[in-house]
């Protein structure tokens, strides 16, 4: 039964991931083309050490990595802030409109990610409709006051806030869906029991609903954090400033445009390792949660 899954994993993950490892521990020829070293006995750690040295000495790779973690953390926080109430409403209060509400949330995301981003570029242009609305409803003033926007109408002037907002907009449905599923699964009777035992609505939410939705929160966060960490086209499209350059942009630069594809592979490998750590944390937490749940 596991054969198709194993085949999928083997072909699309293990082999390709090993190719990245073989390039990262390989070398390049005089045409700057990567020469993978497939045999671990041959591995060359020169490029890996170069990149690690750059991190250790606080070079550009450390700068963009810290920036990437910061952007993703803020985008995750904002996504939860927006996505949780939406998923909560859809799961618990939309009644027979549940399907329709869900569909309404998902429909815009049938359009390709790049197309949606390109649309936002026009909407957020100095004289774009979006810019005018944000100005009229006072959001622009709020952002300027918070120091998140340089000048009126300057959403595309290379702002960190624009990249973070684009991340939130671009990835939020992938947070809402697992959250919705988790919230929808919660047995209504458990909440009623909490209320019967004297809990206020807020207390019932904090002590019953929220803890029971943690696996959904984590699943959603992992789902959207992973692509955000490797994203390079969103900052390119909505900002293109050096101040919003992320680790994905550096990888893109080295693998696609630069002459050092091996360095690009090393960065890819290090990013994958960092994400693996997060992934293991997620798996451990969800396993523990399900053990507690089934045990209780």
């Amino acid at each position: 039964m596991a054969a198709p899954g194993a085949l999928w994993l083997g072909v699309f993950f293990l082999v390709s991931f090993y190719a990245v490892i073989a390039v990262a521990f390989g070398n390049e020829d005089l045409l700057s083309q990567p020469v993978p070293f497939w045999n671990p006995l041959d591995w060359n750690v020169g490029y890996v050490l170069d990149v690690l040295r750059n991190f250790w000495h606080g070079g550009q790779f450390l700068t963009v990595t810290l920036r990437t973690f910061k952007f993703v953390a803020i985008a995750l926080g904002l996504s939860l802030l927006v996505g949780y109430p939406v998923a909560y409403f859809a799961a618990r209060h939309s009644g027979r409109w549940k399907g329709l509400v869900l569909l309404a949330l998902i429909v815009p995301f049938w359009i390709n990610y790049l197309m949606r981003m390109l649309a936002w570029i026009n909407l957020l242009a100095p004289n774009g409709w979006g810019t005018r609305v944000l100005h009229d409803v006072g959001i622009e003033r709020l952002f300027i006051w918070l120091g998140l926007l340089g000048n009126p109408g300057g959403w595309l002037d290379g702002q960190s806030s624009a990249v973070i907002i684009a991340f939130v907009y671009g990835y939020i449905p992938f947070l809402i869906l697992p959250l919705f599923a988790a919230l929808d699964r919660i047995d209504q009777r458990q909440i009623e029991a909490a209320r019967d035992l004297g809990a206020s609505p807020a207390s019932a939410f904090l002590r019953v609903t929220l803890p029971l939705s943690v696996p959904g929160i984590l699943a959603g966060c992992v789902l959207i954090a992973l692509p955000m960490f490797g994203d390079y086209y969103t900052p390119d499209l909505v900002s293109a400033s050096t101040q919003t350059n992320l680790i994905g942009n550096q990888i893109d630069e080295f693998t696609r445009q630069g002459s050092e594809k091996v360095t690009g592979a090393v960065l890819t490998l290090l990013l994958a390792l960092a994400l693996l750590v997060l992934m293991f944390y997620y798996l451990r937490t969800t396993r523990r949660a399900s053990e507690v749940h089934s045990g209780g």
Partner: peptide
Amino acid sequence: GCENTTEPIG
């Protein structure tokens, strides 16, 4: 025992 070089091959 790994090699440690960024000297290109050739």
